[in-house]
Design a protein around this nucleic acid. Structure first.
Lengths: 266, 266
DNA sequence: GTGTTCTGTCCATAATATGGACAAGAACGC
DNA sequence: GCGTTCTTGTCCATATTATGGACAGAACAC
């Protein structure tokens, strides 16, 4: 290894790969559209969230429409992920490693707790709900569907995932998501304070869930390299999660999180 | 859907949207990678199939790797669809319209025929296996998995779909796929002759399936606008599909294809 | 050794994507 | 009706960006 080569690769780590600005931007746009799920996202919001100029976003989105990667909803004019994306996705083997590893734990915890359980993965600067288990208790919080995608930091699971990573990484992600926070009525400072509290506690607890009168508890799940990969969340009506039961539920979630971490490794 | 916007869309059809060559190329590359499924595709083959230059493909693929859209397999160095693609796909509601519409027919035909049934959709210039039903007969042809993607014209279903569209459209697609045919040991002339035969017969029949000693029968399914959307295929060991049974099976497939067409409409 | 595949990189250059500026439509208030 | 403030869509001169010919290394065959 000569020094010119190591100097080069070091530089490349700072300033990634050149010559594909447009493609990178298109991917960024797709991720924002994905957060809009079936309903999609209006162009102006994509512009806000990405920080790109409107002509650029417009051009990207319309090329992707011609390619079938993006669709436009007739009535609302909103842009959404197109049907070619799931078609491309079929190229991959069906269930992800995380889903397989987490399955027994979700089943066990769901039976034990009785309230709705969510498994939320990290993907880039977003959280993505990848599994949901409905419990046996007659009142269930079903606010989040599988596929729901939000900026890291907005949801209880997102805060838990941020809390599990080095403070510097968390700050960087929060800063990157700042433009998107206002759409969720929050801001970087509030998110960071929640993250700090969760880190101290060992899990995240949120008194006011997305739906009025609900409460959430989230634990993080790390990959073998120590990076948080996902979070497991229980959401319930607040009256069902008093201090004592919060403690019980948190212990179950922490126990199962460690089991899932072992299962991913194996 | 939109046949009435004449002047503008006609012009745009000739000279599509400007200013996004790179993005369009990236999508083209992704579609080739999708055909490689889990195993992926070597760079050189992507170059051949797309007609792009190697530096360009290399750049595109590596940017997409950085974005998580493409993955590289350690040992083989092949490129494949990355795990962010299914994550983006989660933004869409789960089962497609076609899948829902075809479900009862597939169930009925599978029970009636007893051999393996495939539902294959058209997506751009490719066929994509979207559903498979295993029959009751002890020998089943399972060559094709859900998610398998091949250039239109290569498979029995692909020929059926080409046969269902105007001859000019079929020729255009076959010409576009020509570069990819050699990897499947066929060529444009052979495909077009199969298409002509199938069109005359009303369904497609192939004596030599992808696997030695198998035979396939495919019928096409059209959308309300008259464009073929999919094909239904039965594959069986050749001895199980003599002339009389071929006739029977074809009649069942034709009947169910018409039923599915009605179900899509409704 | 030579030849033949493959993958990765460089960089001058032309072609491409960019975004400021403009336009037009929709929704609202009055 | 008219003005205001949203939105989306389009143009086109410009320089930033993607391009691909040329080169190089790696792995394998003979």
């Amino acid at each position: 290894m000569d020094r010119t080569r190591s100097a080069r690769s070091a530089r490349r780590a700072l300033e990634p790969r050149q010559g594909a600005q447009a493609i990178r931007r298109a991917v960024t746009v797709l991720r924002i559209l994905a957060a809009g799920r079936e309903d999609g996202v209006p162009l102006a919001e994509v512009v806000r969230a990405t920080g790109l100029t409107r002509p650029t976003v417009h051009r990207i989105v319309h090329v992707l429409i011609e390619e079938g990667i993006v669709e436009r909803h007739g009535k609302s004019g909103r842009y959404a992920i197109g049907n070619q994306v799931p078609e491309l996705a079929l190229a991959r083997p069906r269930p992800s490693r995380l889903l397989v590893a987490a399955n027994p734990s979700l089943q066990r915890a769901s039976a034990e707790i009785g309230d709705t359980l969510f498994l939320t993965a990290r993907t880039g600067n977003d959280t993505l709900c990848v599994d949901r288990r409905i419990g046996t208790y007659p009142i269930q919080v079903l606010s989040i569907e599988i596929g729901a995608r939000r900026p890291l930091g907005v949801s209880s699971a997102g805060v838990a995932i941020l809390a599990a990573m080095p403070a510097q990484d968390a700050r960087r992600i929060v800063a990157a998501n700042e433009k998107r926070f206002e759409a969720y009525q929050t801001d970087a400072a509030s998110v960071m304070s929640q993250v700090t509290t969760a880190r101290k506690r060992g899990y995240n607890m949120r008194e006011i869930g997305l739906v009025q009168g609900t409460k959430s508890i989230s634990t993080w799940i790390k990959t073998p390299d120590g990076q948080p990969a996902a979070a497991m969340t229980v959401s319930a009506v607040r009256t069902r999660l008093g201090p004592r039961r919060e403690q019980e539920v948190a212990e179950i979630l922490l126990r199962e999180a460690r089991i899932i971490e072992q299962a991913i490794r194996g």
